[in-house]
Simulated scan of single mutants.
Amino acid sequence: MKILKVLILGGTGVISRQIVEQLLIAGQEVVIFNRGTKRLAFGEDLEWIHGDKSDRESFQKLMSGRQFDAVIDMISFNAADARSTVETFTHTAGQLIFCSSVAVYKRPLKSNPIREDAEELFDNPEFGYAFQKAEMERYLQGVISEGQLPISIIRPSLTYGVGAANLGVLRQNYNIVHRIRNGKPLMMFGDGTTPWSFTFAPDLAKAFVGAAGNKRTFGKTYHATNEEVSVWNDLYVEFGKILGIEPKIVHMPSELLMRANPGLFGHLYYEKSYSGLMDNSKIKQDIPSFEATISLNKGLQMMLDWYENEAMTVDADKDLMEDRLTELHAQWGRQIEALNIVI
């Protein structure tokens, strides 16, 4: 097997740290580029380059003359970011692999389970994250069509893992455990029955590692997710099973939550109110090693272990926000009951 020299732009995030670990296990030569604000214990078998990718001129100078078999870009969020990567490595990389997102699928969806080639790209600027990622993909598709260099695009779905700060409807993380243990209600959007497949970072990393140097992935776009069918309520129910305490869950429309805090809840309204079940046939055909095997129960146990060993901190502001939202829900219920509507 040929040893690949792989550059990771990022390298210490929830997903990218797993990519680095799996590349090292596979015996690949790994180089990490990031700002150097976080240094993980990967050992001495890799090279670190520190810099700021947003300083495009400095970034290009740092990378000048360096050759890589593959560059995995985990830190491009818009077309300008992606253009910087393309322009920097057009003549010095054998392949570029970009991390996008399933948020780029335009809602309502046309397929279920979702198939890559059946969907259109998101086009509503009101949900900035999805729109900018879709703009990035539109730019990259133009580069692909021009045949400038091999590009692969991988779209993760909602992914959890050690180091994550995105678990829960309020992205409240350890607060979920805290609230269940203390008998406090948890806020869920909608009625909690929207289908979803929750993915964990060690599984997702297999997609990026399997794409590196893989000519079958050149010029193609894939999503890479778990295929275990759950609904959103299961996220809290499963935590309750692990803790041995039945959680108290209250439900509120995603539209009202978004009005309370568009920045925090916009993704629920624009993306997660629709089914999140994916058909992974395409990626499995080109990357046979990709298979998501971590169940929701096993993944949440991993998260609980991490919380209790390293990250057992309550976010007081989010705890107060959840208290206020659930109390508003209770008041709303009492007001409706008081109407005593008779038909």
Rank of each mutant, 00 (worst) to 15 (best):
M1H: 12
K2S: 09
I8E: 11
G10M: 02
G10V: 05
S16T: 00
E29V: 06
R35S: 06
R35A: 08
R39C: 04
S54C: 13
S58A: 13
Q60S: 12
Q60E: 15
Q60G: 02
M63Y: 09
D69R: 11
A70V: 10
S76Y: 00
R83V: 05
S84K: 01
T88W: 00
T90F: 15
Q95A: 02
I97A: 02
I97K: 02
I97Q: 08
S100Q: 00
S101E: 15
A103N: 00
V104G: 08
K110I: 10
E116G: 03
E119W: 10
E120C: 12
E126I: 04
Q132L: 13
Q132A: 11
K133P: 10
A134S: 10
G142H: 08
G147Y: 14
I154H: 07
N166F: 01
N173A: 09
I176F: 14
I180V: 14
I180Y: 14
R181K: 15
N182Q: 14
F189L: 01
D191I: 03
P195L: 09
W196H: 14
S197M: 09
T199K: 05
A201Y: 06
A207E: 09
A211M: 01
K215E: 03
R216S: 12
T217E: 13
Y222P: 10
H223G: 03
A224M: 14
E228R: 02
S230L: 15
D234Q: 05
V237T: 09
F239C: 07
G240I: 10
E246M: 07
P253I: 07
P253Q: 10
P253W: 02
L256C: 05
F265K: 02
L268H: 00
E271N: 10
K272L: 14
G276W: 05
D279N: 04
S281Q: 15
I283L: 14
I283M: 00
D286I: 12
I287D: 03
F290W: 06
E291R: 12
T293C: 05
N297S: 13
M312K: 11
V314W: 01
D315S: 04
L320W: 14
M321V: 06
E322L: 13
T326F: 07
G333H: 04
A338F: 10
I343Q: 06
